[in-house]
Design a protein around this nucleic acid. Structure first.
Lengths: 338, 338
DNA sequence: GCGCTTTACGTAAACGTTTACGTATTTCTC
DNA sequence: GAGAAATACGTAAACGTTTACGTAAAGCGC
């Protein structure tokens, strides 16, 4: 097996306490013994056992991250940021794919509890009562990313969806559009669904444009297919629509795909603005104008906040609204040009 | 703190050994005490401490996964599969983002060694000597996914890149194309670079079509930008090109984007076939015909193989070539129609 | 009812660390 | 150079489990 601290101690003719002190950079030994011990460590190839350490320190230097789907482009960018911050802070990250299933989520939380992770990052989903109970039991810090909790006081890192949607809509209005539709999420979704739809509606009304149910389709998810299926419906309800706000990039691109099939030219006949700024946004044709969420930064920030909470440097973490911006590409035309 | 096995034992008036036996489903207790202990567990909300377990069992029920980038669409799909298989097998997964840096990789391997992971999945990169040495030191099973090692005997899960490229090229030839170019990877890359270029070349030659350096551009990476920048170069070298094989979907879509900008119509004037079948392949316009790698399945399979190796059910794992297929979408036109 | 096996436990060591405490030696102070 | 303070260690307990071993009681065959 791997050499242990005992082996090193024996090899260097000192006690394990001394080895431990040297390994951990504490004081209480001479330069001479330090050198001797370091040579033994080198000679034996000693690696401290993080499990044994974790047992006594009650710290595993590990955090858990829960995503509704790990292969989503949104999740994966956030994950990269989290992993980055965690690594910089000396933590490893365990990924958990909840698949948006309550049962799986609970099962994973229990697992993370058994594994004694030092903290948790919870992404893109609503915090149910069951989850919160476990958070409390675990007594480890939790930070939310790309979501927030309406009922519980948990720190979050996200963008203001209402404002993002509002600005996106205003952007279209500024470009001279007046018949504007939206492909939205679900009214059951208090995080990304309602606020984005509300922002859309409020922007229209602020600028004296009409709003009715005809201006909106709702969807269970935020995927390509949702957008692709929504466009024809919306076009039926709002035949003179010249611009479209989609609540996600995937939906926007789905709508773009449907538009191509229907022979509707983007952006000449229909302008489209998305939401997220995924990597695909610049890859599609025409490149998608969209509301940019700094996903990687969000993950990074959430990771940093969590690390600080774990290290106890901050007692109470403040939540953070991250700045969004509108990335102008080619999917929106300016009607005022004409 | 969390209740321990001792607390349960005290509460139920038995020894910790009995509690342990009951928790682990071993034998050696009466139904009566079992019930009593289970009630105590319930009452106290006892959760076994996986760290302490890991210390004595020398098993952490955790595996490490190393990716050159976690936010890539390729990695994230593979990761989902791995996570799935690991979870089913009772393992957690620690993700590591090597960022294609040797230093980072080594640092992560050391970390995983300290954390005493039970196995490792290594993705999409070449296994350097340094890495292999650590694998040997760690004495845990390793499985490669979406890569293979030319020098070391490590089990891998991947598709046959040579054949994939060969078939992709043949597909274009079957569609009547004769001036076919390729946007390739690097000759330094023995995994995805050389075999795909060789497959391309051999397919041309098999069908009596000429091949020269003019038919190929090489690239450091496989990203959108690489493809976008390659197309004009290739078009200059091969002005009559009617079809194009790109060594990755991202490059294919980059080429498509460049084609749009140059006013070259896809697929009417230029057919494009990609490689990977990422989710974006069906989202772009026109939808991309491509060589499909079963990424999630590959991750899943690699995860299963690793779990079996860890559990010792199989002593030596056989490597697996996963089946690829050509997914026909709209980016390739059939010249024979005319 | 005597020996033997089986059952149902309990005791204690072990896993590899960290760390409080003790102690011998050195260094300092005057 | 005597006593105090600092230094450089070593000893052993603790972290929360699993498990080999021991043992008392129960069950069994005859």
């Amino acid at each position: 097996m791997n050499p242990t601290i005992k082996d090193v101690a024996k090899h260097a003719n000192v006690s394990i306490a001394t080895v431990s002190r040297i390994v951990n950079g504490l004081s209480g030994y001479s330069e001479e013994t330090k050198k001797k011990v370091q040579e033994s460590i080198e000679a034996l190839g000693y690696q401290p056992n993080a499990i044994a350490r974790g047992l006594i320190n009650k710290r595993t230097q590990t955090i858990g991250v829960l995503f509704p789907e790990v292969s989503g482009m949104l999740s994966s960018e956030v994950l990269e940021g989290v992993e980055n911050a965690a690594h910089d802070g000396g933590f490893s990250v365990i990924v958990c794919n909840t698949a948006s299933s309550g049962k799986r989520t609970v099962k994973y939380l229990r697992l993370l509890q058994e594994k004694r992770v030092d903290g948790i990052i919870f992404a893109s989903e609503d915090v149910k009562k069951e989850y919160y109970k476990i958070f409390e039991e675990m007594k480890v810090p939790v930070v939310l990313v790309s979501t927030a909790s309406t009922q519980y006081d948990l720190p979050y890192v996200r963008v203001n969806d209402y404002e993002g949607a509002f600005k996106a809509t205003e952007y279209l209005i500024e470009k001279g559009h007046e018949e504007i539709g939206m492909i939205g999420g679900s009214y059951q979704d208090p995080i990304a669904g309602i606020p984005r739809m509300q922002g859309f509606k409020d922007a229209l009304q602020k600028h004296g444009l009409p709003f009715s149910d005809d201006h909106l389709t709702t969807n269970e998810g935020y995927r390509f297919q949702n957008g692709k299926e929504s466009l024809p419906l919306l076009l039926k309800k709002l035949p003179n629509m010249t611009a479209l706000f989609a609540a996600s990039d995937e939906m926007a691109i789905g709508a773009m795909s449907a538009a191509h099939q229907l022979g509707v030219k983007v952006p000449e006949e229909l302008s489209i603005i998305g939401y997220d700024n995924l990597k695909i946004a610049e890859m599609c044709y025409p490149a998608l104008t969209t509301v940019s969420q700094p996903l990687k930064d969000m993950g990074q920030t959430a990771g940093e906040i969590l690390v600080n909470l774990i290290k106890g440097e901050k007692k109470e973490a403040e939540s953070r609204y991250m700045p969004f911006s509108i990335v102008e590409r080619q999917s929106v035309s300016d009607l005022r040009d004409k």
